[in-house]
């Protein structure tokens, strides 16, 4: 646990000391802000306020943000040779992977918390009465969804020394996991399509968390994806010892 905390602190320090992290954060907030404003503008004239507007966008946006956040985490260590130092340091592989993952998740959580501030606009305007229950549910969902995306990104970062390749592969994988929600459009067998949809990230968000429902199986799914992806990342880091 101490090792995990050490890695976590080191990574968080890097986030705050690295201007790139701020630029990524600014881009994140600009894009989420744009989607929030877009929904707000449409609700003035066309339709009702969507209490889950920002999380719903992020369910797509994380396909790109998660790889950007995680692609350097292990790939860069390997490319710069610092991975060897880490592997010989008094921390185990679990602590390395878990520490890095938790720091990425914490960074993402901070960005997510900033977007919650948008809801203040709703609270201040009496004419807007969104269902805050859906907002809470959607934010819980997208927080777990983001965690799963980051874990997948970290696994790909452990796979290769090239962070561009790691980023690209995780983006493709997450895109496939997102597109799987529309498997019904190509699959002829609905039951098979349903099983595949159960495997996708979006399938556990769009019809549950985003609608205001918190289901046990969705939580198990995201936590499971995080666990499996981190386990694969640990195996990949460990494989450097015997490859």
């Amino acid at each position: 646990m101490t090792g995990t905390l050490t890695i976590f602190r080191r990574e968080m320090g890097q986030y705050f000391a690295n201007p790139v992290s701020y630029f990524i954060a600014a881009a994140f907030l600009l894009v989420t802000g744009f989607f929030f404003i877009d929904d707000l503008t449409r609700s003035v004239t066309i339709n009702a306020v969507n209490p889950a507007a920002v999380p719903e966008f992020l369910s797509f946006g994380m396909i790109f943000f998660a790889p950007v956040i995680t692609m350097r985490m292990l790939a860069e260590e390997a490319r710069e040779g610092t991975m060897e130092l880490l592997l010989t340091a008094p921390v185990n592989d679990l602590a390395i992977v878990l520490g890095k993952f938790l720091s990425a998740w914490a960074y993402y959580s901070i960005l997510l918390l900033i977007t919650i501030a948008y809801q203040i606009i709703y609270i201040q305007n009496d004419s807007i009465q969104p269902d805050y229950g859906i907002t809470v549910s959607a934010y819980i969902g997208i927080w777990l969804y983001g965690g799963a995306c980051l874990a997948v990104g970290l696994a790909f970062s452990a796979l290769t020394e090239n962070q561009i390749v790691a980023g690209f592969l995780s983006m493709i994988f997450l895109l496939a996991m997102w597109l799987g929600d529309n498997i019904g459009n190509i699959a002829a067998n609905i039951e098979l399509a349903n099983v595949i949809r159960q495997l996708t990230l979006q399938g556990h968000f769009s019809t549950s968390f985003a609608a205001g429902i918190l289901r046990g199986e969705d939580v198990v799914y995201y936590v499971g994806i995080i666990g499996i992806a981190l386990f694969i990342a640990i195996q990949l880091v460990e494989s450097r010892r015997w490859r």
């Binding site: 549910s137 046990g216 499996i228």
Partner: peptide, 20 residues
């Protein structure tokens, strides 16, 4: 994970967070 998922799914653990 799959076994845990199937078990929880069958138990139908659902919380309706909508205020309505």
């Amino acid at each position: 994970v799959v076994m845990g998922y199937v078990y929880v799914q069958r138990e139908v653990i659902t919380f309706d967070l909508t205020s309505s």
